[in-house]
């Protein structure tokens, strides 16, 4: 690689600063379900979206809105996209979140060779810097076209830790899990069949502390591959699970499952200041998974 010129001739597409690297690491780690994973990054005036996908059946998106950043200068026309190794990006950001270092980083795109540039700021006599090679994005758009199934959404919100626990427990029966929503009595059922059967019922009226919300006007039932379902919760960092916000699950047209998590990217001043864990919505990263259902067997 050649040495970078001291002065950039053109304004870059994006220069932004973030004062909580760990929050960004947490958010990205949620969608890292294997070691080598390609991600697509899309920049816009509203923020940064990172998308990962697997075998046409599972997609995850991390939304880092511009409000999360302490500085967000967007200079591009259109929406620049690039491919990047998610593993490298997470490992690299982790380095910046070392204790004892200023946690503020500057992210800039593109560098002289279309790299993603990261550097620590606000440190007097030491700095961390990084350049990550980006790739041309793949031509096929990963569009999962999530549409509402009927006139009203089929959705429920469950404590993230409870969801993770339920999905972890469903590991032993076998390769697929059936999720059913029932109108009356309002109930969500996870059922795994294989080496044995395991059924987990979340009754809305009985478990209001676990099942925080429930909307269903018609009964639905779809099967999902266990490994994809597991990817939606397996990598949520422990500190995020402990915060225990709700995870929202929605079943769309054709059985497409949407799982949404919230991850705090607020600057850590004092941990557990408020037990309710309330954060202004602007300091939350949104994470969405889309899981395609298994084809019903005839």
């Amino acid at each position: 690689m050649s040495s970078s010129p001291a002065i950039e001739p053109d304004a870059p597409d994006l220069v932004c600063q973030l004062d909580n690297v760990q929050g960004m690491v947490d958010a990205l780690a949620c969608v890292r379900w294997k070691r080598h994973q390609d991600a697509l990054v899309e920049l816009s005036e509203h923020g940064i979206v990172l998308i990962v996908e697997e075998s046409g059946c599972l997609q995850a998106k991390v939304y880092l809105q511009r409000e999360l950043f302490t500085k967000y200068e967007y200079g591009a026309e259109g929406r620049p996209r690039f491919g990047i190794s998610l593993g490298l990006l997470v490992d690299c950001l982790n380095t910046f979140s070392s204790p004892g270092h200023s946690n503020t980083i500057e992210i800039k795109y593109p560098g002289p060779d279309m790299e993603l540039l990261l550097k620590s700021v606000d440190t007097l006599n030491s700095c961390i810097y990084s350049e990550i090679r980006t790739r041309l994005p793949e031509t096929s758009a990963w569009d999962y076209n999530f549409e509402q199934a009927g006139s009203a959404p089929l959705t429920f919100t469950v404590k993230s830790s409870a969801l993770k626990e339920a999905i972890d427990d469903l590991e032993w029966p076998g390769s697929s899990v059936q999720i059913s929503l029932q109108k009356s009595p309002p109930c969500v059922t996870f059922r795994g069949e294989g080496h044995g059967d395991l059924q987990i019922d979340l009754m809305y009226y009985a478990n209001t502390d676990l099942l925080l919300a429930f909307h269903c006007d018609t009964e639905v039932s779809y099967r999902y591959k266990y490994k994809f379902l597991k990817a939606t919760t397996a990598n949520i960092p422990g500190n995020v699970v402990r915060e225990n916000r709700g995870s929202k699950l929605t079943i769309g047209r054709g059985g497409m499952l949407k799982v949404q998590h919230l991850v705090s990217v607020a600057k850590a001043l004092a941990p557990q200041v408020e037990s309710a864990g309330y954060q202004p919505p602007s300091r939350i990263a949104y994470i969405e998974f889309f899981v395609k259902p298994e084809e019903p067997d005839d």
Partner: peptide
């Protein structure tokens, strides 16, 4: 793929 460094 990456250059990552620190300087004191």
């Amino acid at each position: 793929l990456i250059r990552l460094g620190t300087e004191f």
